[in-house]
Design a protein around this nucleic acid. Structure first.
Lengths: 357, 357
DNA sequence: TTTCAACACGAAAACGTTTTCGCTAAGAAT
DNA sequence: ATTCTTAGCGAAAACGTTTTCGTGTTGAAA
């Protein structure tokens, strides 16, 4: 039950001043070898470690990164966190996690909780509700207060900051081209509503791939699922919707789905309808998660490299933090900075498994 | 690029003292209505928010909980985090996350990084390597420094602290009993090596269920998988091992697996061997994750209620924190405290799906 | 003997709060 | 006219650091 020991206590115990203790512990040559030895021994004995909070206050930086994501029980997001934590730790930072739960208000509350000194910068992915409202003032507000933000995956042009995104467009193009080259003639797209930029880009990629092969996209082959409600708990609805979709379009021989849940559900429905995979119908999903890997047949996917995204984001943020630390007094107007912001695009990769030929 | 405004700046701007500003903002009646109004208006205009770090230093508490888990890309653990974050947020706390990556050293490093003032208490689950080494001094050390710990899932008797665990034993009993009642005559167990207590308990539950039905456990029907190496990247090995197991025990008509990966792999192998599920062979897995839900056939599982575990753990920890805050100067010896520690057992629940009759 | 550098250390400020205590002035009570 | 309240505010300490700037002592150089 003994509290952690402080400089002051060591000083009192050894009958020297606080400054002396501090200097001795940092091996300052101002202090004689004798006292240094004595102090260091004592400190080691009592397992002295400087108090982080005091350091944060003094240095006006916390060595902590705030992560703000919509959801944590989610393969992609947790992979990104792992990447962030990896480089953060390596570079001496901690990570503090906030969940917006896809809610605009929770996003704001979380940001305000953290922006008051608790962290040095944010890495975040925007909540669906925020994307719907298109209200980004809280991001710009915290940036204006001198706190850097790095956005990933769900980003938005209205905010000037570093961004790390998946090449959704080209990922889709690659996937759909693969289906075309595998001789699929009627390729369906199962996607979400458009307000999440990510979904929109993937849809565009689908169309682009078709057009590059002189195929005009058939609107009937595009199924837009309303994911505003909790899909995980309405699995049957999803299944029914896809089944209906398959039935009214009997000639589908290829499916590109914008996430793995839609993809495996499509496979399930296909099999139920007596289609065999990949012989009668081939399936590719975006997002390479556990489902894809362990489904039967295993699913060919477009991998997003979540961990790499996290690593990049963390490096970007920390780079900016140390830069701000060194330039320090130099003054930039916002306009000068603007051009500085980096948008890193992480290339996707097709992981071939059993659901394609 | 304007830094956040401080009390001092407000004071200077309004030509009053810092104390006056502080009091006015907390509506102290020491300050006249006039000045209070003036100060509050000014503060609101400049969006003043007290600096958390300064508060932490002054109050000697950070209102932050440290979470230390072996892995984050993992359905169970991320579910627990969600539960922790939920109640933490509701009760005014933040969460800071550290990953041990199943490594003893990283666990220690992370603890030391956080234990120096950054957090008020820990919620953690022990890494495999630590369990192997059975070296728990770092836990006891931080507890002795006055920092409370709540352990969940992977806990250990050698450390005196609050614990939240899954009823692994009874969960297994329930599962295996269900298989027995479903007329399985030769029930196999697919489990891990024993050093993770969780695995051991589940094995014991399996045996207990059999014995309660006067069946003597057949050692040949128990497959222990060495998960010390990264299973996710050696899927084929796992598959082969299980296939071999099935072949040498041709009469298996029920499988209980201690995690969902083993369970779905078992289903895969079973189907490959021409067995139909659940007619020829029924399968139940521990851990209710995405795989179970979306496998075909979907998997009957023992749900651990990860979110509930997280919520309980957070409540336990925060309760103890506020208690420590109020009792404050009262002094307890470790022995007196010992009896105080709570072990909460979260009951499991069988979620019936298609892999059982 | 005087001067000077080097050495070894301490005092104090600063980071941003909250809170206790003290002080002044004005009005009330004596 | 003197004392007492009370309202309204400021000074200062404290939380635990680091760092700058003294300051006193010592031995050597002059």
């Amino acid at each position: 039950m003994k509290r952690k020991i402080t400089l002051k206590q060591i000083a009192r115990e050894l009958d020297v001043s606080i400054s002396t203790v501090s200097k001795a512990l940092s091996n300052s040559k101002e202090i004689s070898e004798d006292t240094t030895q004595k102090i260091q021994a004592f400190a080691k004995l009592y397992n002295y470690k400087p108090n982080n909070i005091a350091l944060s206050l003094k240095n006006r930086k916390t060595k902590t990164i705030g992560i703000l994501i919509p959801e944590i029980v989610h393969h992609f997001f947790s992979t990104v966190i792992r990447g962030i934590e990896l480089v953060a730790n390596r570079r001496g930072y901690n990570v503090i996690v906030g969940l917006s739960n896809e809610s605009f208000t929770k996003e704001i509350i979380n940001m305000e909780m953290l922006a008051n000194g608790s962290i040095d910068g944010f890495i975040l992915s925007i909540s669906k509700e925020t994307l719907l409202k298109q209200d980004y003032h809280h991001f710009n507000a915290t940036i204006n207060q001198g706190m850097p933000i790095v956005m990933f995956d769900r980003v938005v042009n209205e905010v000037d900051c570093d961004k790390v995104i998946v090449d959704d467009f080209n990922g889709s193009v690659k996937a759909v081209k693969k289906l075309i080259e595998n001789n699929c003639k009627n390729i369906a797209l199962i996607t979400t509503m458009d307000y999440v930029s990510v979904g929109r880009l993937r849809t565009q990629g689908y169309i682009e791939a078709l057009e590059s092969h002189k195929i005009i996209a058939n609107p009937n082959l595009i199924l837009k699922i309303d994911d505003s409600l909790d899909v995980e708990n309405h699995l049957e609805d999803l299944e029914l919707e896809i089944e209906q979709f398959f039935k009214t379009n009997g000639n589908i021989d290829g499916v590109f789905a914008v996430n793995e849940l839609y993809a495996v559900t499509a496979m399930k429905v296909a099999r139920k309808l007596g289609l065999s995979i990949p012989d009668n119908i081939q399936v590719i999903g975006f997002t390479d998660g556990v489902l894809s890997k362990h489904a039967t047949p295993s699913l060919t996917t477009v991998s997003q490299h979540g961990q790499k995204i996290g690593e990049q984001a963390a490096n970007l943020l920390i780079d900016r933090l140390v830069a701000a630390d060194t330039e320090d007094d130099q003054y930039f107007t916002n306009d000068e900075r603007k051009s500085d912001f980096i948008k890193v695009v992480i290339e996707t990769e097709i992981i071939e498994r059993e659901s394609t030929k």
